[in-house]
Simulated assay, not measured.
Amino acid sequence: MVFDTLEVGPADVMYGLKIAADKDKSPLKVDLGVGVYRNELGDYNEMGVLKKAKDELYALNPDHDYEVTTGNSRYLANAAKIAFGSHSSVFDKERREKVASVQTISGTGAVHLALMLLARSSKKNSRQVYIGTPTWGNYIPMCNLAGLESKQYTHYDTLTGGVDFESVIKAIRTADEGSVFILQGCCHNPTAADFSREQWQTLAAEMKSRHLLPLLDIAYQGLGNGIEEDSYGVRHFAQMGFEMIVCQSFSKNFGLYGERAGACHVVCASETHVQPVHDQLRCLIRWEFSSSPAYGSRLVDLVLSDSSKQAECNQEFRTTNY
């Protein structure tokens, strides 16, 4: 028989909790499993600006063709601008961008794609990926899937409830040159222990001296201290001239969970490296899922392409009780 040697896969706590919560019909239940922000009634919380964008998209009545393999270019440009800032050094004066951006199946897909790209790197040490724990449960399995070696260090200090910064710095100083560090940009999952601006600055200086590659996962931008504030780490590393990867999601902040709208941005040393990197990403997407879902990215694009809608969005981030 073909499948008789297959064993049951490792248990997924989140999957089990979701199944159990859906089966529980008690009106008093509270689902603390899957990360979805809900209102006081326990229902899906839709942003006002998103409702307007949905009405606008409905009126535009776009077709249902596939997006190009690498995604909607305007959406990607807008996504990059809120991650890096519109005046970032990654966009030079001649607009020769040093960023290779592609659309992904939300943040999970962005991280997976980034790790698959790193696995194809010719540099041996780029196969070592450092992950601070406790952390999001998918990082280590995805490293394994990509054939990358994951190394763990302590991120969370149980005594202070903050970052164990001594542990982080020790990991950086002992890592092999060229190693990758996965760092969460804001609203750390699952500890909420974020780096301060001063700690981001120290991290950047230490990683620069060790020639390490940051992989910044920014899945909650806008839900911490605001769009600009939550991207401080990303923008500081970019200003320092790092080669880096930024994995972006609009699931949490825009409430587009099931629409799977994300992006992967690879900042290259120069514009000459952008095309080969972009083409490798194109190949990986084509071979795996061909193209990303269109609906959610179209909604995000409508909001980010309109300054008044973006201002309204930022205001909702500041005032909504998630």
Score class of each variant (00 low, 15 high):
residue 138 N to A: 11
residue 139 Y to M: 14
residue 140 I to M: 03
residue 141 P to G: 08
residue 143 C to Q: 04
residue 143 C to F: 06
residue 143 C to W: 03
residue 144 N to I: 10
residue 145 L to N: 09
residue 146 A to K: 00
residue 146 A to W: 04
residue 146 A to R: 00
residue 148 L to E: 08
residue 148 L to M: 04
residue 149 E to G: 01
residue 149 E to C: 04
residue 149 E to Y: 12
residue 150 S to L: 08
residue 150 S to W: 06
residue 151 K to N: 10
residue 153 Y to F: 14
residue 155 H to M: 11
residue 155 H to L: 12
residue 155 H to V: 15
residue 158 T to C: 03
residue 158 T to R: 02
residue 159 L to T: 15
residue 159 L to R: 14
residue 161 G to Y: 07
residue 162 G to M: 04
residue 163 V to L: 01
residue 163 V to Q: 00
residue 163 V to E: 00
residue 164 D to G: 00
residue 168 V to L: 04
residue 168 V to S: 05
residue 169 I to G: 00
residue 169 I to C: 01
residue 169 I to D: 01
residue 170 K to S: 02
residue 171 A to N: 08
residue 171 A to K: 10
residue 172 I to Q: 02
residue 172 I to S: 05
residue 173 R to D: 12
residue 173 R to C: 07
residue 174 T to K: 11
residue 175 A to W: 14
residue 176 D to R: 08
residue 176 D to S: 14
residue 178 G to H: 09
residue 179 S to G: 11
residue 179 S to P: 05
residue 180 V to M: 09
residue 180 V to A: 09
residue 182 I to Y: 10
residue 183 L to Q: 12
residue 184 Q to E: 15
residue 185 G to Y: 05
residue 185 G to D: 13
residue 186 C to W: 05
residue 186 C to Q: 04
residue 187 C to I: 04
residue 187 C to P: 00
residue 189 N to I: 10
residue 190 P to I: 06
residue 190 P to L: 03
residue 190 P to A: 05
residue 191 T to K: 02
residue 192 A to S: 11
residue 193 A to C: 04
residue 196 S to D: 05
residue 196 S to M: 09
residue 197 R to S: 08
residue 197 R to Y: 13
residue 197 R to I: 14
residue 198 E to P: 03
residue 199 Q to Y: 12
residue 199 Q to I: 11
residue 200 W to F: 13
residue 200 W to L: 12
residue 201 Q to E: 15
residue 201 Q to N: 12
residue 202 T to L: 05
residue 202 T to D: 01
residue 203 L to H: 08
residue 203 L to P: 01
residue 203 L to W: 07
residue 204 A to H: 05
residue 204 A to V: 04
residue 205 A to N: 12
residue 205 A to W: 07
residue 205 A to C: 11
residue 205 A to M: 10
residue 206 E to P: 10
residue 206 E to I: 05
residue 207 M to V: 11
residue 208 K to E: 12
residue 211 H to K: 13
